[in-house]
Design a protein around this nucleic acid. Structure first.
Lengths: 191, 191
DNA sequence: TTGTTAGTGTGTCATTTGACACAGTTGTTG
DNA sequence: CAACAACTGTGTCAAATGACACACTAACAA
């Protein structure tokens, strides 16, 4: 059973027939570290399911500084939903931090699923809802926790992300400078 | 036509029959300023559509300080989706900042709609998706814009929210102290 | 009306942070 | 291997921020 099948099976009751029907709409790809999946000015026409590897989702702020929006690991979905769903040009980058194995669902196949299969419509709703809850939790964390606390939790819960991402990129993800993050790291190595 | 009907009509193609069927699952209520709709320790069993008025969504951080998570105006939906959807106890408050007219959809009626009407399932997906995009934009704003810039945009786009919310609550929404927000306000009054 | 409570405006001051500068390290590529 | 680029670690310093304190005002209830 593939990582994708496992993901659907664990979150939803589905017969093997339904599972196969849905999964057959996806295509498997392997990409090298550094591969650009999304770049500004393009319309995102795919959803990516990460079976293996890490993706770096970022953009540039008004001062031209690179800002990390998300650091994705698997098993989970990744796309620029605003571009994918509303057909707008993306303003973001999504780049592979490591070699990755991905399952790709293109927009036409996504629409075909939505329109023909009520089960998929509900699964899509649940996946979007889980992502909404994740974002709400992230906003709460940003308001409620210190940068140090969030760094230490990231280190504990997602060590692979820390290992494969530069200090500067993690700093911008946490909303601080690389110098401040460095002070936190130094303090916690010595402690 | 009610604010709720108008909201659905503008975002989705629906026959008058479908529209009435869906809207009939809601109940209208009027609540006074200060009414508590959600409080910690309870399981949220309703979604609220704001036809008129403002709602204040907040919680307390680890230091016991009040943190504003969202300031809602209409026409839009408001709930604690994590509690409503996953049946967890809420950790948040939701309180009316002004007298409000609300349309309430209870969880059993929501489930009934999801299970009987494919159209509603897709509408729910779209509403959740729009909220996800809104949250993603908020996270981008928090990373990309200064507190001053975000305050001035709030003042311009949602003046009613500024008028009906205390400086301390707006400050915690913007992620700063009431003193710092006060400095920003003073500076921009004089300018 | 008066007392009480919540909120606003403001100054001072210690702390934290970001900006800048630069040396050392690692990794890549011809 | 040598050269270069990218990143890390670090110190200094000015600026921004939060904490604290307190007077003043508005809203509300007794």
């Amino acid at each position: 059973m593939t990582a994708l099948q496992l993901f659907f099976k664990e979150s939803h009751q589905l017969s093997q027939t339904d599972l196969s029907f849905i999964v057959n709409h996806f295509e498997t790809i392997s990409v090298d570290k550094g591969t650009v999946l999304i770049e500004p000015g393009t319309i995102v026409d795919s959803v990516y399911f990460i079976a293996e590897g890490l993706l770096h989702h970022f953009n540039h702020n008004q001062q031209g500084e690179k800002i990390t929006l998300d650091l994705h690991d698997g098993p989970s979905f990744c796309t620029d939903i605003e571009s994918f769903s509303e057909g707008k040009k993306s303003e973001d980058y999504c780049v592979a931090l490591t070699d990755c194995t991905l399952y790709v669902l293109t927009k036409d196949k996504y629409d075909a699923l939505i329109n023909t299969d009520v089960k998929w419509s509900n699964i899509a709703k649940d996946i979007i809802e889980k992502n909404l809850i994740k974002m709400l939790d992230q906003v709460k964390d940003m308001s409620n926790k210190s940068i140090e606390q969030r760094y230490l939790e990231l280190l504990k819960n997602k060590p692979l992300i820390i290992q494969n991402t530069s200090v500067a990129d993690i700093a911008s993800y946490l909303g601080t400078s690389r110098e401040t993050l460095h002070r936190i790291r130094r303090k916690n190595i010595l402690a």
